[in-house]
């Protein structure tokens, strides 16, 4: 049967047909391509115009530029709130990424090795990912209420009093309402970096972000786990047996066999979770808002409030482009590297 289809005449005919169809397929893809391109690239170009203009308003599309051209970005970088947002983004992304990826990997290994109840654990760990950030954010808001939630649990379980006994301090974390920033390096930076004096915020780790990192990891750890589970399932049994024979068992097997094989899955997970972290908006908006001293503020919240509450479109547009650049730096190299070579 297959032989009959691959006679030279048929092959030639098939090639001719395929060649003839090529422009037609492109033509059929064109409407989608065009509308997505408009909604992505033309819209971004428009936002660039707004970010460079001095007086763009919704009623009057005035694109006369600022002098100097980067004036809105200059205002942005001198804005204390936006400085706090950039600090928070860096701190949040690092901690959230580490916690989600590392814990997600361990969860995947544990779940993969289960002989029963695999579906239950996988189902439970991934369930938060299916839910709206607003719904979970609202719940976390109450769990991190200093009077209730987790603190109540600490108190009634005796952890609080045991802690007080040992250290002499009460264990009553303020969670998202904490204004404390630890490990401030801004005064150090001011001394070593020229122009460091523009820094208006404490460059350290805002303790309020701990709660936000926990909530976000709770929601997205399951995603990392699912990706690693897919990776683990792709490792053939022979590989495991071969490494057993070679004497790589237990932790050795994971370190020298599994982790290298899972690298592509880890890369995808890291890229996707990083871009989620850089865009973080709904969860924090519902959970804590901007926090005290903007301790839990994020660029996403800044842009929304600057554009649609304060109606400072130019500054908001400039801030949104900073977000775009950050995401682009992570995603575009990844897409360029992975995209082309694998076509069906």
């Amino acid at each position: 049967m297959p032989d009959a289809v691959t006679t030279p005449r048929v092959v030639a005919c098939r090639q001719r047909r395929r060649r003839r169809r090529v422009p037609q397929a492109a033509l059929l893809l064109a409407p989608s391509f065009l509308i997505v391109s408009i909604f992505v690239y033309v819209f971004i170009a428009y936002t660039v115009g707004v970010a460079l203009s001095s007086n763009w308003k919704p009623g009057k599309a005035d694109f006369s530029t600022t002098d100097p051209l980067y004036a809105n970005f200059d205002a942005l970088i001198n804005n204390g709130r936006f400085q706090a947002d950039l600090r928070n983004t860096v701190v949040f992304t690092l901690f959230f990424l580490t916690l989600s990826v590392v814990a997600g990997f361990f969860l995947a290994v544990l779940v993969h090795n289960l002989l029963w109840a695999r579906g239950f654990f996988r189902g439970l760990f991934l369930l938060p990912y299916a839910l709206s950030f607003i719904a979970t954010g609202v719940v976390w808001r109450w769990l991190f209420n200093p009077e209730s939630g987790i603190n109540l649990l600490l108190r009634t379980s005796g952890v609080s009093s045991a802690y007080q006994h040992l250290t002499g301090h009460a264990l009553q974390p303020d969670w998202t309402s904490s204004p404390v920033v630890v490990g401030d390096v801004s005064s150090l930076l001011e001394r070593i970096i020229p122009g460091g004096h523009i820094i208006q915020v404490q460059l350290g780790i805002p303790l309020a972000l701990v709660a936000v990192v926990l909530a976000a990891s709770w929601q997205l750890m399951g995603f990392a786990m699912a990706m690693f589970l897919a990776g683990l399932a792709s490792i053939p049994e022979d590989v495991r047996e071969a490494s057993m024979i070679d004497g790589a068992s237990g932790p050795r097997y994971y370190v020298s066999v599994v982790i290298p094989l899972l690298r592509p899955f880890a890369l995808t997970t890291v890229v996707i979770l990083t871009h989620v972290a850089l865009k973080m908006f709904d969860l924090i908006y519902a959970m804590s808002g901007s926090g005290i001293g903007f301790a839990t503020d994020m660029p996403g919240i800044f842009v929304y409030e600057t554009m649609f509450k304060a109606l400072q479109y130019n500054i908001g547009a400039a801030a949104s482009l900073v977000m775009l650049v950050l995401v682009t730096l992570v995603v575009v190299p990844y897409l360029a590297r992975r995209g082309p070579q694998e076509t069906a």
Binding site: F33, S37, F39, M307, L324, V331, P340
Partner: peptide, 17 residues
């Protein structure tokens, strides 16, 4: 690939247009 970029962009950067 150009279309795929659309699923990653922060939507804040296209809200005004």
């Amino acid at each position: 690939t150009l279309m795929l970029v659309g699923m990653f962009i922060p939507y804040q950067s296209i809200l005004i247009p």
